[in-house]
Design a protein around this nucleic acid. Sequence first.
DNA 1: CTGAAAGCGCTAACAC
DNA 2: GTGTTAGCGCTTTCAG
Lengths: 366, 366
Amino acid sequence: MASSPIPPERRRATIADVAKEAGVSSATAGRALGDYGYVREEIRERVRKAAEDLGYRPNSLARSMITGRTNTIGVVGADIANPFFASAMRGIGDVARRDGFGTILTNSDEDVALEGEAVGLLLQKQVDGIIVSPASSVETDHLAEAAESGTPVVLFDRDVVGLTADAVLTDSVGASRTAVGHLLDLGHRRIAIIAELRAALDMEWRNWIGSAPAPDTRMLMPSGARLLGYIQAHAAAGVPVDPALIRGTGSYDPNAARERTLEVLRLDQPPTAIFTVDNVMTHGAYQACREMGIRIPGDLSFVAYDDMEWMTFVEPNITALSQPVYEMGKVAAEMLIRRLRSPEVEPARRLLDTTLIVRGSTAAPR
Amino acid sequence: MASSPIPPERRRATIADVAKEAGVSSATAGRALGDYGYVREEIRERVRKAAEDLGYRPNSLARSMITGRTNTIGVVGADIANPFFASAMRGIGDVARRDGFGTILTNSDEDVALEGEAVGLLLQKQVDGIIVSPASSVETDHLAEAAESGTPVVLFDRDVVGLTADAVLTDSVGASRTAVGHLLDLGHRRIAIIAELRAALDMEWRNWIGSAPAPDTRMLMPSGARLLGYIQAHAAAGVPVDPALIRGTGSYDPNAARERTLEVLRLDQPPTAIFTVDNVMTHGAYQACREMGIRIPGDLSFVAYDDMEWMTFVEPNITALSQPVYEMGKVAAEMLIRRLRSPEVEPARRLLDTTLIVRGSTAAPR
DNA sequence: CTGAAAGCGCTAACAC
DNA sequence: GTGTTAGCGCTTTCAG
């Protein structure tokens, strides 16, 4: 036999090559390599050897064409550079890998159109399922379409109306009530809140203050839900809400958060406490406080939604509402994979617990 | 007949369905939809209409089987939850999307075996190319194999020996020399360094101190390279290196960094400055300093490799060596895509600039 | 310009 | 157990 040590094989070896090398049919070679059907042990070994020799790598594309499964899950997050999504992605990736799935990652930047494109791309690539943190609670046609066409969708961190799908959520309204309640309990009566509120603005959140019925929680994005919790906490404590203390950035931009915070701190009647509803808002607001030389908690108590490592690095440590983000990612992936295995089970909404970690940044107002 | 409100899983429309609907052959339908070959405008419209009506979605798997391209790039990073990789991933994702590529993300956790598996998975999925931050500078057979079998590899943040591939790097040795030089210039003579050093330990870095020839930079992982810079800076300043001040964690574990830092701070002759070589080490070391009530820069000057947002939140702000991480990700993706378009160009090593940002955490020793 | 037919690499029926 | 034969959905010759 003509020996060529390692032929710079341009074309990758296919199962047919392996079959020929092993002297069996391609079907048998497939069975031996793919662990399906029956193959005599002796032959299995021979095929394996041949595959090894030829440096054979199965082509999952071809396999997927037949089986209809790609063993890939698609993830649409807002921004992987945000630690919240980064942790979640790690949770998703760990579970996915454990169960033999790959993960395709896309960023939506909170843009419904981009999200729609991303979902379309994932569908074309025939992902088995999609985990998405929707950019909108109402414009969700693309998600419904995916779900209906047989690609299950798991909602991450954000619920939507009119779509029956698995979801991994936290009780943002309740958590926010807890966080703001903590400040009210301490005696604060003027509490600022810095939030994105893009969607809530459309919903005229001003109506929530007072006697109007509470909006459907499922229609609210996290920032809106946390504002609702803020309002509910005030109502429960019988403390009136001053709309001047509610500041929306309109986007997840730390600098906008910084500016809104500067504005509110410069009010004639400034707040005695501030509540930031996610890590981006916290970033900007904390920066603003530093710029203005605000003393915490002397001048201002500070509560952040979303705990970050650095919150124990600063003096005083920051009181934070901690979410199990990595766990949320894991659960999302587990729910999706469970659904892939048994499509008929009822869609579920998993609510994970949050914790208020009281640290030094909150104290009674002076 | 039993009415099913939402047909659970109607078969997705194929190009044949569209062709029949439009009254043309599937070849023509393909040409109309896929923007290749010639189609009369009138027909193209008719086909598009039919596709629209049927909710047709091209199956990229089938397309890829023929074209041999998946428009997907694989990324193997150590840990997406680490802000360094998260930012890089964002850069990669942005460029990839712009150029019509999807991204499959996997974590290696600095484990060569896991990395090998990940690369194997990506190869099976027929990714067009791979961006990898190798877990080892020497065990790189799987990378060489990928490259040789026609899947280009771009090295991210870490060079390797014996593999000709595109690479996006920073000059870790030089940057470290700058950072440590800054401390030496301030008059520090006992500077601790906290680094991972798992690979460097194998290389017996103790030999680098003194007159031994410098090791080949390409063999060094970032933590080793930064230690080398530390040693070189000392040599240039004529300051002897005390091995007791060099602490390796052996893994990217903030708690290990915390412990190594506590140890070094409790030395009979403690350091007057500390240099942490990446954000994980910084995290643990800073924590240790807080625990021990160390005053910065009074008791200890602090320099961190890798700038983080919170470094301007703490008092004093931390002097940091800043890397253009997002940019590095973008460049990596650009290099890969360029190679996919023109495979014959010479592999290049792109070195991006780093900057030392001097802040309040460094001062002359007392 | 359009259609018929031949596959891409693999698995799933079906024979033997 | 194993081989033969169809395809999966699409692009690509190659005629016409």
